[in-house]
Design a protein around this nucleic acid. Structure first.
Lengths: 204, 204
DNA sequence: ACCTGAACACCGTTCAAGT
DNA sequence: ACCTGAACACCGTTCAAGT
C-alpha cells in the first residue's frame, strides 16, 4: 500500500508530504480555512498526528511559506536588477491564494527569511548604495511588495466571493489590468529614490 | 445606576461605549486576545448582546480601527509635507498595541478608509506630481508605513513576551533606537523618488 | 517512530425568549 | 430597544494509549 523505507518501517507521512498538502489546501480554500483539522483530513490522519511532526501550527505554516517562496527562485535573479527581483517575488506571492498574508505573518514572527531580501540588498549595492542604505532599501521594497500583494489578494477574494456590491462592482477590465501597472509604478518610485540617493552621494 | 436617556429608557450601552472598551482591551491584551467574549466581559454583558449593536466582529473591529486613526489627526497635516504626514500616521499606529495589523485587515476588507491617504495624495500634488502619480505615491507610502509598523509591533510583542532567545537578544539599545531612524530613512527613499520623478517630468 | 481517541479550553454566530 | 441563555459548529493543543 505504501513504500516501506530502507529499514522496513511503515513511515506513513513525511514533513514534506504534510507541507505539500497544506499548500494545496491553502490554494484551494484560502488561509481562513487552513485549519489543522482540515490539513489532517486532507492526508487522512487525526489532527493530533500533526503535532508529532510540527511543534505547533505557526511552524507548520512557516514551512508552507518557505516552500511557496523557494520553489521558483530564478538563477538570473542573483545578478538581476532590483525591479526584476521584486517582480519575480511579487509573481511568486501571486501564485498561491492568500500567500502574502501567510508570508507576512510568518515573517513577522521571525520564523522565515525571504530569499528576495539579500538579492535586493546586493542589487542595491551594485546600484551604488552603501551597506546601510542597501539594507533600508531592501526592507522598504519588501514592505511594499508584501503590503501591495496582501491588499491585492484580499480584493481578489472579495471579488470571487461576490461580496463587492459597492465600488468594486464598477471596476472595469482596464482597472483590473492596471493593478500590475500600479505595482510597477510604485516600485519605480522607490527605485527612482535609490538612483537619486546614489547620485546625491556622488556630488557630495 | 445609569443615566436614562431623554425618553426614560434604560439605554445600557452605546456603540461608542463598546468600541471604546474594545480599544482599551486591544491595548491591554493584544489583537489575538481581542475576542467577542472578552469584549463582552469587559462591559459586563453577554456575547450575543454585541450582535445587536454590530453585524459581526469585523465591522466592530473596523470601528475600532477608525477610532484609533481619527483621534489625533492634526490640523497642520492638511497642509504639511509628505514626510510629516507619514510620521504622524506612524505615531498614531504606534499608540496602540497591534494597531497596524488591525488597521491592515480592516483596510484589506474595504471596511475603512485612511485619513492619511488623501492628505498624502494632496501633498504629493503640491510637490508637483500629477493625479495618477500622486495616487500611486500615496498607496506606496501607505503600504510602507503599515508594513513597517506591523513588523515593528510584532517584534515588540515578541520582545515583551521574552520569546526572543535568538538574535533579538543581541539587540543593543542603539539598535532599538535606530528603528525610528530606519522608518524615516525608508520614507526618505520614497520621497526622494517622488522628487526625482517630478524633476524628470519637468525636463521632458 | 508514528498515529489514534478523547478531552480541554476556547472561538464566532444565531436565535428564541425575556424586559 | 436592548439583552439573556443556550445552542451550533467550529478552533489549537495536549496526552495517554496503541502499534
Amino acid at each position: 500500500m505504501r513504500d516501506p523505507d530502507p529499514n522496513g518501517q511503515a513511515r506513513r507521512h513525511s514533513r514534506a508530504d504534510i507541507v505539500r498538502a497544506a499548500l494545496q489546501l491553502l490554494d484551494d480554500e484560502g488561509l481562513p480555512n487552513l485549519s489543522m483539522r482540515a490539513i489532517a483530513d486532507r492526508i487522512g490522519v487525526q489532527v493530533s498526528a500533526l503535532y508529532w511532526h510540527f511543534r505547533n501550527k505557526q511552524t507548520l505554516l512557516a514551512q508552507v511559506s518557505e516552500r511557496l517562496l523557494e520553489s521558483g527562485t530564478i538563477d538570473s535573479d542573483a545578478a538581476g536588477d532590483i525591479e526584476s527581483i521584486a517582480v519575480n517575488f511579487h509573481e511568486r506571492l501571486l501564485a498561491y491564494r492568500d500567500a502574502a498574508e501567510l508570508v507576512s505573518s510568518s515573517l513577522a514572527l521571525g520564523l522565515i527569511t525571504l530569499p528576495a531580501r539579500p538579492l535586493i540588498h546586493d542589487a542595491a549595492v551594485r546600484a551604488g548604495l552603501e551597506e546601510q542604505g542597501a539594507t533600508i532599501a531592501a526592507d522598504t521594497i519588501v514592505h511594499f511588495v508584501i503590503g501591495f500583494t496582501f491588499h491585492q489578494q484580499q480584493r481578489m477574494n472579495a471579488d470571487s466571493a461576490g461580496v463587492a456590491i459597492h465600488e468594486t462592482a464598477t471596476m472595469t477590465v482596464a482597472d483590473i489590468g492596471s493593478q500590475g501597472d500600479d505595482f510597477r509604478a510604485g516600485l519605480r518610485l522607490i527605485t527612482a529614490g535609490i538612483r537619486a540617493t546614489v547620485a546625491e552621494s556622488r556630488t557630495a
